[in-house]
């Protein structure tokens, strides 16, 4: 009788595993992290090996699959700098220089471990295909493969909380499997509007030993925006959206 029960339970587990579609799960993760179009405030903190910190406050708006824009509110030396991402294209506008210049995804407008692709992140499901899915007791583990060569990290290994369906950890790797950085998702909070998600992302990297960067989220809310907001010509005016 016990054997029959065990067999039945095993079949049940297997059936539930096959019922989970990796692509759908990844899209669900994206929607649990943020609405498709939103506004958001973030504090970015770079922590150096000696413990000293540099902090930046950034206002960000996103629309649809591939449009993200942001403007730095502090410190004074960075105030007014704005960033724009349209798909694989990224620009930085510096008020002193006065015109947007193209930047690349592997650069970092603030230094530290977060690069431009992290700061102007798109939905994971827009940049990655699910190459593998593993079920653990409390988590799913997604093996993600970049859809194109222009994506900053070729492979991601994402641990997803089964209950909340949000990431708890992501390892970012090269095509050869070398670890570039690890993102740790912490401090789950209710942002209102049905969004219960980690409010803090920490990152470290074997390439930057001793350095750590932190991203803190606040005032995340859904917002409809015109496409024209996400253009080079509009970059000097992004702060007017606040």
């Amino acid at each position: 009788m016990l054997k029959i029960l065990l067999v039945l339970v095993s079949f049940g587990c297997a059936a539930s595993a096959y019922a989970i579609d990796g692509g759908e799960l990844l899209e669900k993760v994206d929607r649990h992290l943020a609405p498709a179009s939103y506004e958001l405030y973030r504090k970015l903190i770079n922590i150096e090996p000696n413990g000293s910190k540099k902090e930046y406050v950034l206002f960000t708006v996103k629309k649809g699959k591939d449009m993200v824009a942001g403007v730095f509110l502090s410190p004074a030396s960075e105030k007014g700098r704005s960033t724009l991402r349209l798909g694989d294209n990224m620009w930085l506008y510096i008020p002193n220089v006065g015109k947007p210049v193209r930047i690349t995804s592997l650069q970092s407008v603030i230094g530290g471990v977060f690069n431009n692709a992290d700061i102007l992140a798109l939905d994971y499901s827009d940049e990655y295909d699910v190459a593998g899915l593993e079920e653990l007791e409390k988590e799913y583990v997604l093996d993600l493969k970049a859809k194109t060569k222009t994506v900053a990290y070729d492979r991601l290994k994402m641990w997803v909380d089964r209950e909340k369906v949000v990431p708890t950890r992501i390892e970012c790797k090269t095509e050869a499997g070398m670890l570039i950085k690890t993102l740790y998702f912490k401090d789950t909070q209710d942002f209102g509007g049905g969004f219960v998600r980690p409010a803090v992302i920490e990152t470290d990297s074997p390439l930057y030993k001793g350095y750590k960067s932190v991203m803190i989220f606040a005032k995340l809310k859904a917002r409809e925006l015109a496409d024209e907001v996400f253009t080079l010509t509009y970059m000097p005016n992004i702060e007017s959206l606040r």
């Binding site: 405030y41 504090k43 413990g51 406050v57 502090s74 803190i216 606040a218 606040r242």
Partner: peptide, 11 residues
Amino acid sequence: ADDYAFDTSET
């Protein structure tokens, strides 16, 4: 290093 306070009045 572990003090991640974000005072939203900054925004």
